[in-house]
Nucleic acid binder design. Structure first.
Length: 665
DNA sequence: CTCGCGCGCCTTTTT
DNA sequence: GGCGCGCGAG
């Protein structure tokens, strides 16, 4: 928090140690500051750092929080703090309770892709069915429904067959010595529920729990939290139900309301002073969100002055218009490109803005995109590492056994699969034995044998050698670079892939020591990788670049000047949400967008929009009508008390805009 | 069964 | 404007 002083409710939230606390933190109300100050306060009050756990939803948020706490209390005193995502916390519990969980050393974490491949094996090629199965299995786990329960409670044939697939899927995960993302919550909860001694041990381990973005917790996360906090209920959760925008991926905003049921002594503190936005922007936000039914009513206020009115633009060419406004605004005020953001509902809307920004040579960056750890070449290397630490990981085995080509083809693998199935062996172990069975031709057997021998040697060496040099050696052995070059669509792509791999190996090198300077084992590193998030390197906000972002990806960010684009019926609220009768979540999305703006906010909509080949008429969003019309600058819309000064100001701005457009041609 | 072409449709995304 | 799926043909 940049302010040294806490305001009274913030201070109350920080100093409240007696019993469970829910902090309802409005947008821009300094909630991260409250959490970090609270951690500092806990340490000052005698809590040992290693007995404080703070939980966030993304690795990025966890990293930022750790950095801010470090600044506040000093790295020395902050060391040992457990600041992590729910999933990392679950992983840590599973690691330490590995035997109770029935897992072997080095167990793998399956990502969505691995899970999908496994389901494909179980269900065949029907993509629709697979997708349904993936979603259903994930829902069941998030709701803590076991395979057995899913099978017995199935209401129709379809559900019963999905439940059987779920059961098979879990069985296979077990055979692979693997867990999936949902298991990182589901299985710890299972352990805590079924083993009272274990539960007590973990409850004693953490003297105090803090949860950020509490409105985004799903059923399993809530249960993990509840079982870790135990009867002592020494916790602070911070959230804003008005910013709950992830119901579609399992978040249960109802968890906020349920807290006071599960913890009758819950104290609730509201943070309503906003330190981010000017008055007009907040008035618009408050008015809009009042359109939703809410359990806890909040009213944000700001001491920053009224600021500019919220502008609304009706456009013919929206991207062109918005960029023109942005450019002219910047010329008038002398700001940086990074002061501006264009926010929209769906990714595809970015394209038009990208085009115009490129044409005018304005630097920009776009939210989202493929994650570094999601790229094929990186996933390949990770599969190798997974196999080295967990020889039972059949998914990893299959991914790399013939990559680069070792002439171990489908026929060989089919034989191997059959052999393994008969003996109940993982593929790698089976591959070590099959050579003597006479099932494979001499050549195939030799190729498979060579691979297995090579891998086994690496496995042995991984016990003692440093991970990064081992990986370098391994990549040289298989001439991975040549493989990347040969399989790339063009030279450039091959180069880029090779660079990514280099960067990955460098990353391994940087993480080859743990916090205390001890060398990290390959096993530890691979575990970290499973939960590693996107592009650490691209995280920074860049002052030289306009930010293009979806509304979802913009949560938690702020910009001096924000343009919300495509504020139209069908886009925001999105048609699918209208069909599902879920306008409330769309309204919260719009609320999140509005409250990103510090000094100026411009909402735009198109009169007509290309949809495929044809041009369709657009209706301005119902949300625009819900805004306080007296506070808006909406050219073409009648206002009850339109003062001459504002009209003049608009005239001046318009002229400046024209001038800027001419300049920028 | 697999490949290729053409049509049609087109949220949000983390671990 | 691009991607994914479905259908048809080889």
């Amino acid at each position: 928090m940049s302010r040294v002083q806490l305001n009274p409710p913030q201070r109350a939230a920080v100093e409240h140690l007696d019993g469970p606390l829910l902090v309802l933190a409005g947008a821009g109300s300094g909630k991260t500051g409250v959490i970090t100050h609270k951690i500092a306060h806990l340490i000052a009050s005698g809590y040992q750092a290693e007995r404080i756990a703070a939980v966030t939803f993304t690795n990025k948020a966890a990293r930022e929080m750790a950095a801010r706490v470090g600044q506040l209390v000093g790295r020395q005193r902050a060391s040992g703090l457990q600041i992590s995502t729910f999933h990392s916390l679950g992983l840590r519990l599973l690691r330490e309770e590995r035997e109770a969980a029935g897992l072997k050393r080095g167990f793998s974490i399956f990502d969505a892709d691995d899970a999908d491949k496994l389901l494909a094996d179980l269900l065949g090629r029907d993509a629709e069915l697979r997708k349904l199965a993936r979603i259903t299995v994930s829902r069941w786990k998030s709701a803590l429904i076991s395979p057995t329960r899913a099978v017995t409670e199935a209401e129709d044939d379809r559900e019963a067959s999905l439940a059987r697939a779920y059961s098979e899927y879990q069985r296979h995960l077990g055979a692979y010595n693997a867990v999936d993302f949902d298991d990182l919550l589901y299985r710890p909860v299972e352990l805590l529920r079924e083993d009272p001694a274990l539960a007590e041990r973990w409850q004693n381990r953490f003297g105090y729990l803090l949860v950020d973005e509490y409105q985004d917790t799903n059923g399993a996360q809530y249960e993990l939290f509840r079982r870790l906090t135990g009867p002592r209920a020494a916790f602070t959760v911070v959230g804003d139900d008005d910013q709950s925008i992830y119901a579609w991926r399992g978040a249960r905003p109802g968890n906020i309301a349920d807290l006071s049921r599960d913890f009758p002594h819950l104290t609730v503190i509201k943070l309503e002073q906003n330190y981010r936005s000017c008055g007009h922007i907040l008035t618009a936000a408050n008015r809009l969100i009042q359109g939703n039914e809410r359990v806890y009513d909040k009213n944000l206020w700001s001491a920053l002055g009224a600021g500019d009115r919220v502008r609304i633009l009706a456009c013919d060419d929206e991207a062109d218009r918005v960029v023109s406004e942005m450019v002219s605004h910047r010329l008038r005020t002398g700001g940086q490109p990074g002061d501006y953001a264009v926010l929209y509902r769906s990714n595809q809307q970015a394209r038009a803005f990208e085009r115009v920004l490129r044409e005018r040579n304005v630097a920009y960056r776009v939210s989202g995109g493929r994650s570094f750890f999601d790229r094929g070449e990186i996933r390949d290397v990770i599969a190798y590492l997974r196999l080295l630490t967990n020889p039972d990981d059949d998914a990893a085995f299959l991914r790399i056994v013939n990559l680069p080509r070792r002439e171990i083809g489908p026929a060989t693998l089919e034989q191997l699969g059959r052999y393994a199935g008969e003996r109940g062996l993982p593929l790698f172990a089976a591959a070590r034995g099959i050579g003597l069975s006479g099932r494979l031709g001499e050549r195939s057997a030799r190729r498979l044998g060579d691979f297995v021998e090579w891998a086994a040697d690496l496995m042995m060496r991984s016990e003692s050698e440093a991970p990064d040099s081992l990986v370098r050696q391994m990549l040289a052995d298989i001439d991975y670079r040549a493989w990347l070059r040969d399989t790339a669509a063009n030279r450039q792509q091959g180069e880029r892939r090779a660079e990514n791999v280099d960067e990955f190996v460098a990353w391994l090198g940087r993480h080859s020591e743990d916090d205390r300077g001890q060398p990290a084992s390959l096993e530890t590193l691979v575990g970290k990788l499973g939960l590693m998030d996107l592009m650490e390197r691209e995280d920074r906000q860049d002052a030289a670049q306009v930010q293009l972002s979806t509304l979802h990806a913009a949560k938690g960010l702020e910009f001096p000047h924000v343009f919300l684009a495509g504020i139209e019926e069908g886009l925001l609220p999105h048609q699918n949400s209208l069909d599902e009768d879920n306008v409330a979540e769309e309204r919260r999305l719009m609320y999140v967008g509005i409250t990103r703006a510090r000094r100026s906010l411009t909402l735009s909509y198109c009169r007509q929009r290309r949809r495929g080949r044809d041009l369709v008429d657009c209706q301005p969003s119902r949300f625009l009508e819900e805004l306080p019309v007296d506070e808006l600058d909406w050219p073409g819309k009648r206002r009850d008390n339109d003062d001459p000064e504002a009209r003049q100001a608009r005239g001046r701005a318009h002229l400046a805009g024209l001038r800027a457009m001419l300049d920028s041609e």
